[in-house]
Every structure is written in C-alpha cells, then in structure tokens.
C-alpha cells in the first residue's frame, strides 16, 4: 500500500489541461494542410499523383479532400511542392463536403442541433465499432480513457453494449465481412442516436479505398454526424471533435 502511494507521487499528476490549454504537439506533427488555394500553374498533376485521389483542381483552385488525405510525410501530390502540413490538429467537421478544403478558414464542427444536444450535451455514451482498419484509430480512441486525456471528465464514455449507447463511433473502412455487424450494431442503438466516423478509413476507406473487400467507410452506409479525418487522427483531434459536437469548445 505505501509503495503504491509513494509510486503514485513519483509518477506525478499527468492529466492534461485540455481544453483550457492547447496541447503542445511535436514540430513534425502533420495537421491541417497548408497551401494557397489559387494554383498558378494549373497543371492538375495532383489529381493523378495523390495515390488516394485526395486532390482536385477546379477553376485554378486546388482542393484537398481531407476525408481521403492520409497526411503522408512524402506527399507526392504537388510537383511544385506547394502542399505542406501545419501543426493544427483540429480537423473534425459535421458534413462530408466540409472536408473539401481549399485553404483559408476551415469549417470546424458545429454542435448538434438543440434536440440532441439537450440529450447528449452533458452525457454521451458511445459504442465503438472496429471494422477493418489497422487498429491505430482504435488505439487512439482507447488512449482517451487514460489519465492524460481522462475522457470521463467530459461526460463521454465508451460502453460495452449498443443497448447502453447513444451512438456509434466507427473506425475502419467497413470490410465486407463486417458490414452486417456494423449495421446490426447501429440498429441495436436506441434512437435518437449519433454516428461518428473516425480516421481516414472510417470517413472514406483510407488506404483501402480501392480494395474489393471493403466499403468506402461509413458515409455510404449510414448518416454520419461527425467526421474526424487523419491516419490515424491524433487523440486530441478526436477529443476536440467530440467536444465540438457537444458544444463544449
């Protein structure tokens, strides 16, 4: 017992000050892409060069679909090297089209509409469903339960049964082998409910977007209330998204 207490002092107090203080992310962290929307060359090479089809040029303006972007360290998309990544971890949005980013202000997620906000704003129970990803998004959801993030203090909790949940949080592109289990889990959640897609896979299929064995994330199967892009998203990206959905940021 004394050893436990003394070790507790040795380990120190580790819960972060988020959201009162912004987290310090390493300088090499790749967040919101940084580029000028106007594309002077108009070469449209990026449409071909991004292996995941995240780039499009419309009327000399480049747009990056953050739902498809994997934030690759060696982003091959722009031959002029005009795409770099900022340190901004806040990426969650409410609508799929909001992920089409052309530079400038980023449309961060708005809170739920008043009816559901009233129900879930102070207590949100989520059933996490893993459906064909690589387990990195799952790990970064799990980590929210550690004392660093301490998800419970925001009234958000991952629960064991869909019957106890207010919604599902899905990771993975939804493999064909998991499709019916995902839909069954969604059905088992009593309404009204929320649906959250976490990670490039859950949003649009991620690295497996062209696989014959997967769907392209959750968007094609269910109505999604919150999209959290990234491969995988940083835990603070997920937490920031959840808090925005509940009108807490």
């Amino acid at each position: 017992m004394w050893r436990v207490i003394s070790e507790r002092f040795h380990q120190g107090f580790r819960t972060g000050k988020f959201p009162l203080e912004e987290p310090k992310l390493p300088p090499r962290f790749r967040g919101l892409p940084r580029f000028d929307g106007e594309c002077p060359s108009g070469c449209r090479a990026c449409e071909e060069l991004c292996p995941f089809g995240a780039c499009a040029v419309r009327e000399r303006k480049m747009a990056i679909d953050l739902g498809r972007c994997l934030f690759c360290a060696d982003c091959p998309a722009c031959p002029q090297g005009r795409i770099t990544f900022s340190n901004d971890y806040r990426l969650a949005v409410r609508r799929r089209q909001d992920l089409l980013y052309s530079g400038g202000a980023y449309p961060l997620a708005e809170p739920l509409e008043p009816a559901r906000l009233k129900l879930f704003g102070r207590s949100l129970k989520l059933r996490q469903v893993s459906a064909g990803g690589c387990n990195a998004c799952e790990a970064d959801c799990n980590v929210l339960n550690t004392l660093v993030f301490d998800l419970g203090r925001f009234g958000i909790q991952f629960v064991a049964s869909p019957r106890h949940a207010d919604g599902i949080l899905l990771t993975g592109p939804v493999t064909e082998n998991m499709r019916s289990a995902v839909l069954d889990t969604y059905e088992a959640v009593p309404g009204p409910k929320v649906v959250i897609a976490v990670g490039a896979c859950g949003v649009n299929g991620g690295p497996f977007v062209d696989s014959p064995e997967t769907n392209q994330g959750l968007g094609t199967l269910l109505p999604v209330d919150l999209y959290i892009p990234g491969c995988p998203p940083h835990p603070y990206t997920i937490l920031d998204g959840l808090l925005r959905l509940l009108g807490r940021r």
Partner: peptide, 24 residues
C-alpha cells in the same frame, strides 16, 4: 472480419498506394 485483400492489391506493384497499405 478485418480482411482487406492487401496481398491481392500488391499484384503488379509496387503501386503508389502500397507503402501506406504496408504501414497499416
């Protein structure tokens, strides 16, 4: 349940998307 057909997608590769799939 997690089958994503990674080995078949490598055929005729390496492809531009291959490295990201290997990391996942």
């Amino acid at each position: 349940y997690q089958h994503r057909a990674i080995e078949p997608m490598l055929l005729a590769g390496p492809h531009p998307f291959t490295m990201a799939q290997m990391e996942t």
